[in-house]
Every structure is written in C-alpha cells, then in structure tokens.
Amino acid sequence: MVNKWLSRCYLAIMFLFLYAPIAVLIVFSFNESKSSGKWTGFSLHWYEELLQDSQMQTALFYTIIVATLATAISTVVGTFTSIGIFKLTKKTKAFVLNVNYLPVISPDIVLAVALMMLFKTLKMKFGFTTMLLAHIMFCIPYVVLSVLPRLYAMNPNLAEAAMDLGATPMQAIRKVVIPEILPGIMAGALMAFTMSIDDFVISYFTAGNGVTNLSIEVYSMAKRGIRPTVNALATIMVSFILVSVLISNNLSIKKKREV
C-alpha cells in the first residue's frame, strides 16, 4: 500500500514536471501585461493580437501544411517501400536498412547542414519545396521502421492465400497485407507527424528566407523576447490536441463496444 502511494506520487511529480511549462504557457496567454513571470490580470488581449498577426498565422499554416504533406507522402511511400524491402535479397536489404537508419541516428544538425549543402549544390531555390523534401527525408525512415516488424510478424502465407484465391499481387497487398500491417502504418504515420511538427533544426537550415514555420518564428523571437501571442497560439494548439485525443479515444471505445 505504501508502495502504491509512493508510485502514484512519483507519477504525479513527473507529470507535473512535464506539464508545468505547458501550464505556464496557457496561464500567461491570459495575462494582461507582456510579462510571462508575473501575473498582472486577466485579458484576452493576446488572442486579439494573434488574429491580427499575419506573420504568426503564416508560420502556423506552413507548419501544419508541411507536417500533413510530409506525413501523408512518407506514410504511403514508406509503406510500399517496406513491402518491397521485405522481399529484397539479404545484402541489398542490409544496405537499404542501414542507410534508412542514418537519419534516425544522425544528429539533426548534421542532417540539416548536409541537406543544405545538397540543395545549394543542386542550385535549388530555398523555400517551401526544400523544407518539404527535407521533412520527407527524415519521416520515411520512421514509417519503415514501424511497418517492417509488422511485416515480419505477419503470417507469410496470407498473401499467398490471397493470390491462390485469384488476387493479383497488387490486390493481395491492398486487400490482405495492408490491413494486416495497418497498426504499424498508423504508428509510423503518428511518429512521422510528431517528428515533423516538432522539428526546428532541419527546417531552420532548409527553409530559406521566404518561408518560416512556428519553430523558426519562435527561435528568432526568442532573441528579442517572446510575445505572449505565441502563448495564445500554444493554448489554442493544446486545446486542439486535447479535443482530438478525446474524440479519437471516444471513437475507439465506441468501436470496441460495437465489436
């Protein structure tokens, strides 16, 4: 019993640690003054300002659009690639997997400068495209890494059974293999989205002047002092995340009940 109480306490302290900064962001988005250390009174001032702040809105737009596109593209490409890798010969497979692993283990800063050098060498114009390409580059490996184990765990006769019953290889993949590995695909997509939306370093080096995202905006702001409009934006994001998590939780509970 003492043990249980102790572990609950520990859990509570750790979650306090994780959520304290977020709570601070939220509380001070309603602060009257610009200070983010001293409470001076309630106001929705910063939310009004956020509505006027076109630069912040553009940054948010780019963050979301890049994360969505990068996730969608890497999930599709990563899934089919994994199915392909699964059938490669041992040597080629080892090579592809090792290279695929590089973006996962390389520091962001190294990936960032490497991509910057590539885009400069290819004389590409820095902007939305380069940033998106960079995000796809580091997202696909996560999809592959979470889909492949599912493929290995799958009964190898499943696809053969489908073809035996008259499905073409492509149909077998679509109708049998993909439904079977779906949990891995979803996990990979979630991972890719998380990585993309949280990325700063690689975006910073590959976005160029015209395009910013939230991270870049915050970073450049940090040097001059952050305006509480960002807090307001963070609060909106937190509420959005909370709502979507609650909805998806309810949906999955409902689904389970129906089953």
């Binding site: 392909g84 699964f86 059938k87």
Partner: peptide, 26 residues
C-alpha cells in the same frame, strides 16, 4: 508475396541515394 514486389523498394533506393548518401558524401 511474390518476388517481384521487391521492385516497390527501388524508387526509395534512388531517393535515399540522392537525399541521404550524396549529402553525407558532400
């Protein structure tokens, strides 16, 4: 799955060569 499904990985091999291997070599 059929042997030929390995072709699904060929585009990715080209992609990683350009966007991972070349930058590292650079």
């Amino acid at each position: 799955m059929h042997e030929s499904t390995k072709r699904l990985s060929y585009p990715y091999i080209v992609w990683i060569s350009i966007i991972i291997i070349i930058p590292m070599l650079l």
